[in-house]
Simulated assay, not measured.
Amino acid sequence: MASAAPVTAQSMTLRVATYNAELDRKGPGLLLRDILAGTDDQITAALTVIATAKPDILTLQGFDNDVEGHALRAFQSALAEKDHAMPYAFAAMPNAGLVTGLDMDGDGRTGEPRDAQGYGRFTGQGGMAVLSRYPLGEARDFAPFLWKDLPGAIPPSRDGIPFPTAGAFAIQRLSSVAHWDVPVQLPNGTNLHLLTFHATTPVFDGDEDRNGRRNHDEIAFWQRYLDGALPFPAPDGPVIIAGVANLDPVDGEGRRAAIQRLLNDPRLQDPEPRRTGKIAVGDTGQAGEPALDTVDWPEPSPGDLRVSYVLPASDLDVISAGVFWPADGDPMLDTVNTASRHRLVWVDLRF
């Protein structure tokens, strides 16, 4: 009698990436126009970066949102033409450019980009999207969540008075763009909770430190969410945070305690993705490890920093990680520079 062969579990490798492609435009509909034209060098370069990195799941920042998702579908089609189809997508209207009718930055004027719920010349400018090779479940959109409702929030004030006014802060949403929990349905039956966001820059404000405090609390949101301390339940499966914190744990301005706490949270792990190319001599002038930097901002201020992160749950199996940043002399570096000042960051997981 023939003996049965042993049954072994099939493993799969999953690449999760985050990329601030800086594809925002100065008016509604312009991004769609540029994608459909097929002649925009920046868009072509961004598509090439993504198709070369080949993520299975991608959080995309700096991507203008339109109500019916025309630009996102056009971008998916263009990516498929690059032989890297990502047929599943999620996007929701962000806080960026969402009109409030109030003076939100305290300059005595209304109707300006900084008077929106999040900076934006029009509603949806510089929004976010999630692209995936695998089906997506029902997402949680935390964009409407109010800043004042975050436990432990550090609201802006001047001389002990809420900034710019108590009324303005009462309607101020926490997310400058958005916070989302997007479940990804993997072939092995796992629902991986993709936690993504794009925090405000911690500069460009006054002594009230409105942006610095908001950046801190946007990062702190995820720990409160994992704690179950918010008005909605914590995620019920494995998580991975992938997005733009806009804060370096060592260099640059900002309240660094927020990102340091997140990186040291025992429920998460930091794979410390590093540049794929050799570091140029001129890129080593700051206190932090330059190989970990994810953005090429002009020096001396702020210079290269680590601002984009992919942080899997501590019990997930990480097998590799990297920052898509070719070395000087590599022909791909011109493409990467044309696409964005930011670099695509990826982590490979084994399930």
Score class of each variant (00 low, 15 high):
residue 6 P to N: 11
residue 10 Q to D: 09
residue 12 M to T: 08
residue 18 T to A: 11
residue 18 T to R: 03
residue 23 L to T: 04
residue 26 K to H: 00
residue 29 G to T: 12
residue 32 L to D: 15
residue 35 I to K: 05
residue 39 T to C: 07
residue 39 T to E: 15
residue 41 D to P: 06
residue 44 T to F: 00
residue 44 T to K: 06
residue 48 T to F: 05
residue 48 T to L: 09
residue 48 T to E: 15
residue 50 I to D: 06
residue 51 A to C: 03
residue 54 K to M: 12
residue 55 P to A: 08
residue 56 D to K: 02
residue 60 L to M: 06
residue 68 E to S: 13
residue 73 R to H: 14
residue 74 A to Y: 09
residue 77 S to Q: 15
residue 78 A to R: 15
residue 79 L to V: 05
residue 81 E to K: 10
residue 88 Y to W: 14
residue 88 Y to G: 03
residue 89 A to C: 10
residue 89 A to L: 11
residue 91 A to H: 02
residue 100 T to K: 10
residue 108 G to E: 13
residue 109 R to K: 07
residue 110 T to Q: 12
residue 111 G to Q: 08
residue 115 D to S: 11
residue 118 G to K: 06
residue 119 Y to Q: 12
residue 120 G to F: 00
residue 121 R to P: 00
residue 121 R to N: 14
residue 121 R to C: 00
residue 124 G to I: 04
residue 124 G to A: 10
residue 124 G to H: 05
residue 133 R to A: 15
residue 136 L to K: 10
residue 137 G to P: 02
residue 154 I to Q: 13
residue 156 P to L: 10
residue 157 S to I: 00
residue 158 R to D: 08
residue 159 D to W: 01
residue 164 P to I: 06
residue 172 Q to L: 02
residue 172 Q to P: 00
residue 177 V to D: 02
residue 177 V to W: 01
residue 178 A to W: 00
residue 178 A to C: 10
residue 179 H to Q: 13
residue 184 V to W: 13
residue 186 L to R: 14
residue 188 N to Q: 13
residue 189 G to M: 05
residue 190 T to S: 08
residue 203 V to D: 10
residue 206 G to A: 07
residue 212 G to F: 07
residue 219 I to L: 04
residue 219 I to N: 03
residue 219 I to T: 07
residue 220 A to G: 01
residue 225 Y to M: 04
residue 225 Y to T: 01
residue 226 L to V: 07
residue 227 D to K: 14
residue 229 A to L: 08
residue 234 A to L: 09
residue 237 G to R: 00
residue 240 I to L: 12
residue 241 I to P: 00
residue 241 I to L: 15
residue 243 G to S: 12
residue 245 A to Y: 00
residue 251 D to P: 05
residue 253 E to Y: 03
residue 255 R to C: 01
residue 259 I to G: 08
residue 260 Q to N: 14
residue 270 D to G: 02
residue 273 P to T: 07
residue 276 T to Q: 09
residue 277 G to M: 10
residue 278 K to D: 13
residue 279 I to K: 07
residue 283 D to A: 15
residue 285 G to N: 03
residue 290 P to F: 07
residue 290 P to T: 06
residue 293 D to S: 11
residue 295 V to T: 14
residue 296 D to A: 14
residue 297 W to G: 00
residue 297 W to N: 09
residue 303 G to Q: 06
residue 303 G to W: 07
residue 304 D to S: 05
residue 308 S to Y: 01
residue 310 V to H: 06
residue 312 P to Q: 04
residue 315 D to P: 00
residue 316 L to W: 09
residue 319 I to E: 10
residue 319 I to A: 02
residue 325 W to H: 11
residue 327 A to K: 04
residue 331 P to V: 05
residue 335 T to M: 09
residue 341 R to H: 10
residue 349 L to C: 03
residue 350 R to F: 07
residue 351 F to T: 15
